[in-house]
């Protein structure tokens, strides 16, 4: 369960309260500059609130920096280039994501066990990425990179998933495909998930709890 108590961030979010139950899927909408991304950044620890507390499954994470929250919160960012490393291979990207929230030791990062897991997860995408583990991510299309980002966010367990306008940088056809993948992943993973989207079609396809941010406050819709 995610609980935000009286969160204030600069002038963007004012005295905001939110409770999201375990396994719930929530859509967040709002005008540009309303504070959707700020809300996500506050949960992930990229931005620290001026006041208020963030509690995840009973643990107060308010004072933890982003890297220390990585074990419980995983992100897919709007820009596929920001969520992956172009100059590294698909395998290296997945290796980095695989160690999220774990202690990075001096043992070789490549292993057959991990490769099998990566291939299994990548095959969900039906993009043939499972046979391209040694390819550099900069050679992938935007849609493929974003799909890889989604896989990287679920490759190890986390309590909260944050999807921040994951289709905003993609063309309509690709974005439908990515959204389909995201929905499939959600259906199988049963995670607490927050998603920001502007796409009306995508919103209509999903029946779930909806929140609107306006004037720094959250409203149910």
């Amino acid at each position: 369960m995610l609980r935000l108590n009286n969160i204030t961030v600069r002038n963007t979010l004012v005295d905001l309260n939110l409770i999201i139950n375990k396994g719930e899927f929530v859509l967040v909408t709002g005008d540009n500059g309303a504070g959707k991304t700020t809300l996500f950044n506050t949960i992930s620890g990229h931005v620290f609130p001026k006041s208020g507390t963030i509690v995840i499954d009973g643990q107060d994470v308010s004072s933890l920096p982003q890297y220390a929250r990585a074990a419980v919160v995983s992100n897919v960012l709007q820009d596929p280039r920001a969520g992956t490393v172009g100059s590294m291979t698909i395998r290296e990207n997945l290796n980095i994501a695989y160690m999220r929230g774990k202690c990075r030791k001096l043992i070789p990062s490549n292993s057959f066990v991990r490769d099998d897991l990566y291939r299994e997860k990548l095959s969900i995408l039906k993009m043939d990425l499972e046979n391209r583990l040694d390819d550099y991510v900069e050679n992938l299309s935007g849609g493929q990179r974003q799909a890889l980002s989604i896989i990287m966010s679920i490759i190890v367990d986390s309590k909260i998933l944050l999807f921040d306008e994951i289709t905003a940088a993609l063309d309509p056809k690709t974005s439908d495909n990515i959204m389909r993948i995201a929905r499939e992943v959600m259906a199988t993973e049963h995670k607490t998930c927050l998603m920001i989207t502007h796409n009306v079609n995508h919103m209509d396809q999903m029946s779930c709890r909806r929140l609107v941010i306006k004037n720094g406050k959250l409203n149910e819709r």
Binding site: S44, H46, P65, Q66, Y67, A68, A70, A71, S74, N75, L77, A82, G83, T84, V85, G86, S87, M88, I96, A97, M99, R100, G101, K102, R104
Partner: peptide, 13 residues
């Protein structure tokens, strides 16, 4: 390569 990404993946930059 990408400090934001590193931080998201739990790396203490």
């Amino acid at each position: 390569q990408n400090k934001r990404f590193a931080s998201i993946c739990g790396i203490n930059v």
